[in-house]
Every structure is written in structure tokens, then in C-alpha cells.
Design a protein around this nucleic acid. Structure first.
Length: 922
RNA sequence: AGGACUAUAGCUCAGUUGGUUAGAGCGCUACCUUGACAUGGUAGAGGUCCCCAGUUCGAAUCUGGGUAGUCCUACCA
């Protein structure tokens, strides 16, 4: 074995081996366990958040696979309508082309080409992360099967009246030329202005002053509104005002939506360009005048002077023209929430168009019930509140998108504007008796990407066919996801699955935190703080990292700042840490919090942990390979105290890991494993094995017992670790397993260690604690007195009981080695003690004679520190026990414990004080 | 405006149903190449558990109020 762990050599080799042997596929069995991968964008690439999520899913999958469950991790990717179309359009733009130049068919060919070309990135990354996905079942949301599912769902919902077509105000993205759903709009506070305009009364007897943040919309005003009880304006209700810049007159209406306190208490109403005004317009039967075109430029409904102007240009002109007419009553600074498209970043327009909608309210009812009655449980539970809050106030879902890339809506129109929904044009003709003489054209629009991903849990398993996979794996076991897509995806999956399968899509939703950078900032391309998990695995030099972060920016002017920050944060680039270290870092961060700060410092610690495991294995193999490890049935095997103790610790750790996984506390699981491997197995057990193995006089049975324990505990630990660190455990296991008497082609399919608490040996634990106590006591004196580590010291023991004497007898060899003792002898009652430094293990005193070793002043200082600490603690305990209310009211066991504590402390204090006196008198 | 979450060592975070000497990793200090490992070992320093009040024999933990931060939802033009 190499002296240090070299991950790069082994990872790819093992992954290829596993995949080619078909180990990732379900293997049958009683209990099914299934996770659906949240499908990543097929043309995208994985970031740290994905890496985190994949690691968690893989740990769960490997854990259940090893436990013998019929385990499926379904892999697949999403066509990501808007994002993908945008990328390809930008590529065309570079050649001076638009998608319209190519036409729909040619354009789609280009998108498919791009998908083929870039689609490998994601799957390559997934493999590098060690994800044990069943690649033989890979799916894509635009596969024929999944497309069939999408069409089936659309048609059925339409026929059930749960999908309808309607002219409504939608969120229009003027850059992407498509409607988007409420969820795809980001509202952010921005600085703007509030303009006050005077609208003259038609009778010429004055004016009303309105306030607006969007002056250009006044061209589409069809009323002004006041509060019905507002005394200032009551007499004007029903009168007309002249709408400036136009030749129209519009009514003054009353509506209690109007806030009397805000602005002048008069609101201009533009039903075609504002969601509230739209509602009010409907209540009052106002006309709706659309003054914008698809680019959000002013259209022909507006006065000629403004036609063709961009909305922001039009705003300037409107303000200027009103000012010229003396109707601008004032401008004030005003902060408002501006809606922007989450993809394009441009200001979204409420825009009146024909769109398709899903009646979400109806579908939400059973979806709410499923969580209420615990058929679906969120972990952590608090996310259920988020889910309920949204579901109980859900709005209809606009599912049509004016894109080309996606599932085309299965609806056909005739010349009269009638439309028909069916699986194909032929089906429409057949079902509605339409002859070939009637021209039909299919709806140009496609469906929201989330519409197809809402079907993901069952469409990937073959629905609408009745497949065996559906029967076996659906409902799936758990969904692992971030809270940011509870609305987008989780809720919609629950609604759709319940409706079409009459069962839940999954029993549990495990909601993990979002990975952020070391400063707590969200990772984003434009901030230039994204990390590619592969760069942490393989390492990357600074120049490549800078190049990667500054390439293809939407806002190239940010490049300089990103470069500077990157050079500052990673002056030497990123070292290669390997997949196992990265994964273990993820697990250690997977607590219940919402934000996960990824600090590069932590991964280094876990790389060291890998190396620790590697070297522990090296030690074990050096001592066990080719030796008698007691695997022969008849050979006598004798277990030492240390052997029994480490087996006991392993059992306790096993139990803890099972508990932690059951609660999705991967941080606790990883901590328990780290602690066991490093602080128990390596720090103590390997050291305790040395005196046995290196003792020529030790019995063969004892050496056999120790070798057997070394190798079997290591072998079990590797299996325990495997779901978290798949590569290093496989690599070592291949060598270790045969020596431990285990056979099999791979650790992946070995049974996961079971058992646990019942195998804990409390006697062995207590005895080793005693040994540790003595060793630590001596080491402490050594450390503080600067006794050279190589120097063996004699110790004397005093005031111990029979048990202490027994323990010393049994463990002299351990103590000699670990504390580097020259000798250990009892001081009997009549003996006079030499001047010595003292350590306490309970009532037992350990004396290290000072002659030639120990500095008087240093020992006095050390003692006085110890005494100080004890006095403080004692005062607290005495205070407690001195409180009659405590003694009277606290449970007897608690009081007894405090009393014991007090006595122990008093005793220890007395001993140390006497020591201090003795030394002080010298 | 409403709601949620967070506040513990220099940093990143654990801390179960109230009873611990409040823990871990990283970082820091001193010493050490001893036959698995310097990606290491040994010892050590470091905390007013955000603040105030309350409940309780007892509060990092429960309640109320505040402060700071993050996020979500909402129609103030």
C-alpha cells in the first residue's frame, strides 16, 4: 500500500467496475426502496448544491441496498424549457441568427444537437461523485414514453375540466416572449419614483390628482377610483375625467380597494396592465385597453405619438408631455417591488393573453389532506407549514409557454377559433367528425417544464402503461430536495400523482439546506462564487479557476471583480481532495439548518480522515496479512480487555449510525463514524494492540484474538462507512475482507452491519476508561512538566481499592506502553511517599516522583490551577445542595448524584491541597 | 404588513424529554520524526450560550418582550 491515500488512482476504476457489473440495478427482494433523482437540467452542469444532494441520496441508496432492500435509484434529466432554449438562442445570436430565421423545426434540431453534445456533462459529474444510479433506466423528460404521459395527463385534465383556456393577465417576459408562472417572477425592492398627475374633470371644474409608479400605463387607463366613503371625492363618483394625452374620457368609480391614506387617495385604473386594476376592471365592467405589444413597446391602441416606443422611452415621453401641459403635479422618490423574470432578469409586464391554466385549487385539496394525515411527511417537519401556507392559497397555474422547446400542447384550432384537445390531429378529426376540408392548426405553445416534472415519479416507471416497476417501486420512499422548490416541484408532484395514481408520490420529503459559499452568499454564476464539485475532487489551478468563473458571463463587466475575489480566496487554486473527502464533508454539514456554508477548510480535515483510515488499514494489514487471525474454527482465541472494548464501541457506533440515518441526520452519522475511527480505533485500540502483538511472551491465543479483532473491526467499519465513502472503503475492503474471512466481489453488496446497543460491554468500557484515566493522568504530568516523551517514568499508586489493584494487575502491559512507564508500584499504608507530582483517577492517586524530573514551581502552578477549578465546581455543587428547596423538590436521583459529586470533589480537593502543602514546604 | 427561521469558542457547527465540568472539526500555543499515518502524535489555551424579564429547586434548553440577521408570503397605486 502507498504511504498516503491517493484517491485519483482508485475512484474511476471502481466506478467503472461497479457500473459494468450491473451492481446499481435493483436486485429483487421483499422490501422495495426507491428514490427518484430530482432531474437536473440536461444541458447544465452540477454545482455544489447538486453534489450535496446527490451525496445524501447515494448514502441512503447504498445503505438500503446493503441492507438487502430491492433498491432503485432512478436517474434522469429535465429538458428545462426556458433555460435550454435561451442557451441555444444565444448561440444562434452569436452567428447573427434568430430562431425565427431557422424556423421551428430547424431550431428544434439545433436544440437536440446541443442536448446530445452537452448532455454528457451532468452524467459524467454524477459518476464522479460515486452516485450509484441505475443507468440502465435513464430517462429524459422529452423521451417518447414521458411525452406520452404528459399528453395523457393534459388530455385527461382537460376532459375533467381541470385544464382550461382563458384570456387573462399573465406575467409576460418581454425578452423571452413568453408567459411565466407566478413562481418564476422575483419581486425585489428597488428605488423608483411616484409621479403625481392631474386629470382634469370633464366639466372643466378642476381636476383629480392621481399617483403612479408607471406613468406610461396611463395611456391604457379606463377609470380613476376613489374610496366610496372618502368625503373629499364622494361628489365626483360617477363623473367623468379627461384622460390627458388621449381623447378619451373615463369615469370616476368607487371601490373600497382604494387606500384613502396613500398618495392622494385617487388611483388610476389600467385593467390590462395591472393585476389589481384587472380585478377592479372586472368588478366594474371597465373596458380593458392593451397598449403594449409582445416586446412591451407601445402598440396601435395608444395615441399615435407613442406608438412603437419602448415602455421606458414611452415613460419619459409621457412624463415630459404631461409636464409640458402643466399636469405634472409632482415627483417623489419611492421604493417599490419590481417584478423581474428569474431567467431573463427583465421587468415583467402584466399582459393580457390567451393561456392554458390548471385548476390548482381543485387538485390541491387531496394534496393538502395527504400531508395532514401523515401519508406524506416532511423532514424537518416545519416545512409542512410552508407547504400548507402555499397550498391553501394556491392560484391557478399558467402552464402554457410561448416557446418552441418543450411538450407541445395537444390542442388544434379551426379557422373559426374553435379548439379541440386530443392526442393528434387525426384523433381530433375522428372524435369531432371534422373532414379534411376543414383546416386545423396545432397550438403553437408548449407546456411549462414543471408540468412534465410533476409526473416524474410515475412517468419514469412506465405510466400510463401498467408496468411491474410501477407496482414495485411506486409510491417511492423518499424525495430529497431543497426547500426552494417545494412549490415548483414537490407540491405539483403531490397534486398530479394523487390525481392520476390515487396514491402519494413518496412517503417522506427530506428537505435539506442550500449550499452557500464561505461568506454565506448564495452561489451564482454572476457572483462568480460557484464551485464545481469536480474541482474539489480533482483540484484545479488558480488560472483555470479564474478562467472558468469569468467565462460566458451575462454581465462581462463583473469579470474583474470576480477574478480579484477568486485570486484572494484561492491564491493557490484548489488542491485535489478526492470524492470520499468531499462526500464526507457534505455529510458533516447536513444538519437541520437552512443554510450550509461550505468552507474549504473543512474538506481538508476529511481528506486527512481518509488518510487516517488508509494508514490504519496499512497497520492492520502489516500485522495480519499472512498471519494467523483466528479465522480457523478450532484455534483458541483469547480476547483482551482492549479487544472486548473496541468491539463494544463498534457496536455502539453501529447503533448510532442507524439511528442517525433513520432521522436523516447525516451530520450525526458522520460524526459518530469519525469519532469512532479516529478517537477510539486509531488513537487507542491500535496502540493497545501493540503491546500484545509485539510481546514475544504473549500467548498465541491472545495474539490471535487481537489480530482477529483488528481485522474484523476494520472490515465491519469499512462496511459501516461505505455508504458515505464508497471508494476508499471498496479499495481497502478488497484486501481486508479475505483476511477477515469474508468473500464477495464488492463491498457494495455486502450486508450492512446490524446489531448495536445489545452488544455493548459496559464492564469493558469502564475498565478501559480506567486505563485511559491513568494514562491521561501521567501524560498530563509529562506534558506540563516537559518530561521528554522518550523518557520512561516510574509511578507509584496510593489509596486505591481492590478493583484498582485488579485493574493494574490486568493492564500493566497496556499502561507501560501507552504512558511509557518504567514501573508501577503500590504504596502501602506504612510507606512514606516521595515528593511527587500527583494525578487522580477517582480516589486513586498516581504519583510521579519528582526527583530529577519535575520542577517544583511548575508542579505548584499546575496544582493550583487544578485546585482553583475544583474549588469553583465544588462551590457550585455545595450551593445547590445547600438550597433546601433543591433537596426537597428535585428528584432523589439528581440529589444523590450531586451529593456523590460533592464528596468526590471534596476528596480530590483535599488530596491536591495536601500535595500542594507538601511540595510547598520543600 | 404577516409568517418562518437563526443567534453557543477566533471560524463553521452539534447540543435529544430542562439536571453536562457546555462539546466537535478547523484555527491557535508548546513539545515531539517513537517501527500505520507530519494529510501525524502528545499536552494546552480559548465560552457572560445575543440582551432583558418570567416559569422552575434548577434554563444554552421552556414562556414573553427586545436587538441583529436571513428567508418566504402579501394588491398599497
Amino acid at each position: 500500500m502507498e504511504k498516503t491515500f491517493q484517491p485519483a488512482d482508485i475512484e474511476t476504476r471502481w466506478y467503472q467496475q461497479w457500473e459494468s457489473q450491473g451492481y446499481f440495478a435493483p436486485r429483487g427482494g421483499e422490501r422495495a426502496y426507491c428514490i427518484m433523482i430530482p432531474p437536473p437540467n440536461v444541458t447544465g452542469s452540477l454545482h455544489m448544491g447538486h453534489g450535496f444532494q446527490e451525496a445524501i441520496m447515494d448514502a441512503l441508496i447504498r445503505y438500503h441496498r446493503m441492507r438487502g432492500d430491492n433498491t432503485l435509484w432512478q436517474v434522469g434529466t429535465d429538458h428545462a424549457g426556458i433555460a435550454t432554449q435561451m442557451v441555444v438562442e444565444r448561440q444562434l445570436e452569436a452567428q447573427g441568427l434568430s430562431r425565427h430565421d431557422l424556423g421551428r423545426e430547424k431550431f428544434l434540431e439545433k436544440v437536440w444537437e446541443w442536448k446530445e453534445q452537452s448532455g454528457g456533462t451532468i452524467t459524467r459529474q454524477l459518476r464522479r461523485l460515486g452516485s450509484s444510479l441505475d443507468w440502465s433506466r435513464e430517462r429524459f423528460t422529452m423521451d417518447p414514453g414521458l411525452s406520452e404521459a404528459v399528453q395523457e395527463v393534459f388530455i385527461r385534465l382537460y376532459r375533467e375540466g381541470l385544464i382550461y383556456r382563458g384570456k387573462r393577465l399573465v406575467n409576460w417576459d418581454p425578452a423571452l416572449h413568453t408567459a411565466i408562472s407566478d413562481l418564476e417572477v422575483i419581486q425585489e425592492e428597488e428605488q423608483g419614483h411616484l409621479w403625481h398627475f392631474d386629470y382634469p374633470l370633464a366639466g372643466g371644474e378642476g381636476h383629480l390628482t392621481v399617483a403612479t409608479t408607471r406613468p406610461e400605463t396611463m395611456l391604457g387607463d379606463t377609470a380613476v377610483a376613489v374610496h366610496p366613503e372618502d368625503e373629499r371625492y364622494q361628489h365626483l363618483i360617477g363623473r367623468m375625467v379627461k384622460l390627458p394625452l388621449t381623447d378619451r374620457e373615463i369615469p370616476v368609480i368607487a371601490d373600497d380597494y382604494v387606500d384613502r391614506e396613500f398618495g392622494t387617495g385617487v388611483v388610476k385604473i389600467t385593467p390590462a396592465h395591472d393585476f389589481n386594476d384587472y380585478e377592479m376592471g372586472r368588478r366594474h365592467g371597465l373596458p380593458m385597453i392593451n397598449i403594449l405589444d409582445d416586446d412591451a413597446a407601445i402598440n396601435d391602441q395608444a395615441p399615435a405619438a407613442y406608438r412603437g416606443l419602448d415602455r421606458f422611452e414611452a415613460r419619459k415621453r409621457v412624463v415630459a408631455d404631461l409636464e409640458a401641459q402643466g399636469l405634472l403635479a409632482g415627483i417623489e422618490a419611492h421604493s417599490l417591488r419590481v417584478p423581474r423574470g428569474d431567467r431573463s432578469g427583465v421587468v415583467i409586464e402584466p399582459y393580457l393573453t390567451d393561456q392554458w391554466y390548471v385548476d390548482a385549487r381543485e387538485l390541491a385539496k387531496p394534496a393538502i389532506a395527504a400531508v395532514e394525515n401523515r401519508a406524506i411527511q416532511f423532514v424537518p417537519k416545519q416545512w409542512e407549514n410552508t407547504y400548507f401556507a402555499w397550498m391553501r392559497d394556491i392560484q391557478d397555474w399558467c402552464i402554457s409557454r410561448q416557446l418552441w422547446w418543450g411538450h407541445r400542447i395537444p390542442a388544434w384550432y379551426d379557422e373559426q377559433g374553435n379548439f379541440y384537445v386530443a392526442s393528434s390531429e387525426a384523433a381530433v378529426r375522428a372524435e369531432h367528425g371534422l373532414g379534411d376540408d376543414i383546416a386545423l392548426r396545432q397550438d403553437e405553445d408548449v407546456l411549462d417544464t414543471w408540468f412534465s416534472s410533476a409526473l416524474w415519479t410515475f412517468s419514469t416507471l412506465g405510466w400510463p402503461q401498467d408496468t411491474e416497476e410501477l407496482a414495485t417501486f411506486h409510491p417511492t420512499s423518499v424525495l430529497v430536495t431543497g426547500f426552494d422548490i417545494i412549490f415548483f416541484w414537490v407540491a405539483r408532484m403531490i397534486m398530479m400523482t394523487l390525481h392520476f395514481r390515487q396514491e402519494v408520490p413518496f412517503h417522506t420529503v427530506y428537505v435539506h439546506g442550500l449550499v452557500r459559499d464561505a461568506e454565506g452568499q448564495k452561489m451564482s454564476k454572476s457572483k462568480g462564487n460557484v464551485l464545481d464539485p469536480i474541482d474539489l475532487i480533482d483540484g484545479i489551478d488558480l488560472e483555470s479557476l479564474v478562467a472558468k468563473r469569468t467565462a460566458g458571463l451575462m454581465q462581462p463587466q463583473l469579470a474583474a471583480r470576480i477574478e480579484r475575489a477568486t485570486r484572494e480566496q484561492f491564491p493557490d487554486g484548489i488542491a485535489p481532495y478526492g470524492t470520499d473527502a468531499l462526500r464526507f464533508t457534505y455529510f458533516s454539514l447536513a444538519s437541520t439548518g437552512r443554510d450550509i456554508r461550505f468552507d474549504i477548510g473543512r474538506i481538508e480535515g476529511y481528506r486527512n480522515f481518509c488518510n487516517k483510515i488508509w494508514n490504519a488499514a496499512r497497520y492492520v494489514l502489516m500485522n495480519c496479512d499472512g498471519q494467523d487471525c483466528g479465522s480457523g474454527a478450532d484455534a483458541a482465541v483469547e480476547l483482551s480487555l482492549a479487544d472486548r472494548w473496541i468491539r463494544s464501541k463498534l457496536a455502539a457506533t453501529t447503533a448510532e449510525v442507524h439511528r442517525a440515518i433513520a432521522q436523516y441526520r447525516f451530520d450525526l452519522a458522520s460524526q459518530a463514524l469519525y469519532e469512532f475511527v479516529w478517537n477510539e480505533y486509531c488513537d487507542w485500540y491500535l496502540e493497545l494492540s501493540k503491546p500484545v502483538l509485539w510481546d514475544d511472551t504473549a500467548s498465541a491465543a491472545a495474539q490471535r484474538g487481537t489480530r482477529q479483532t483488528l481485522i474484523s473491526v476494520l472490515e465491519t467499519t469499512l462496511r459501516l462507512l461505505h455508504p458515505f465513502m464508497p471508494f476508499i472503503t471498496e479499495e481497502i475492503w478488497q484486501t481486508v475482507a479475505p483476511i477477515a474471512g469474508k468473500n464477495g466481489p464488492t463491498i457494495m453488496l455486502q450486508p450492512y452491519p446490524e446489531g448495536g446497543d445489545k452488544d455493548v460491554d459496559t464492564v469493558a468500557n469502564a475498565d478501559i476508561e480506567w486505563v485511559k484515566g491513568v494514562v491521561l493522568g501521567v501524560r498530563n504530568i509529562r506534558g506540563e512538566m516537559n518530561i521528554p516523551p522518550g523518557k520512561a517514568v516510574p509511578i507509584l499508586l496510593r489509596n486505591g481499592d481492590e478493583r484498582d489493584r485488579e485493574r493494574l494487575r490486568d493492564n500493566t502491559q497496556f499502561l507501560r506502553k501507552l504512558a511509557r512507564l518504567e514501573s508501577a508500584d503500590w504504596l502501602e499504608a506504612g510507606d512514606t511517599a516521595p515528593v511527587a507530582a500527583t494525578a487522580l483517577v477517582g480516589e486513586l492517586e498516581i504519583l510521579v516522583p519528582m526527583a530529577g524530573l519535575i520542577d517544583r514551581e511548575a508542579e505548584l502552578a499546575r496544582l493550583s490551577r487544578e485546585i482553583d477549578k475544583l474549588e469553583k465546581d465544588l462551590a457550585r455543587v455545595q450551593g445547590k445542595l445547600g438550597n433546601p428547596a433543591f433537596v426537597a423538590k428535585a428528584p432523589a436521583a439528581v440529589v444523590a448524584k450531586e451529593q456523590e459529586k460533592m464528596q468526590a470533589q471534596q476528596q480530590a480537593l483535599a488530596t491536591l491541597q495536601e500535595q500542594a502543602r507538601n511540595i510547598g514546604q520543600l
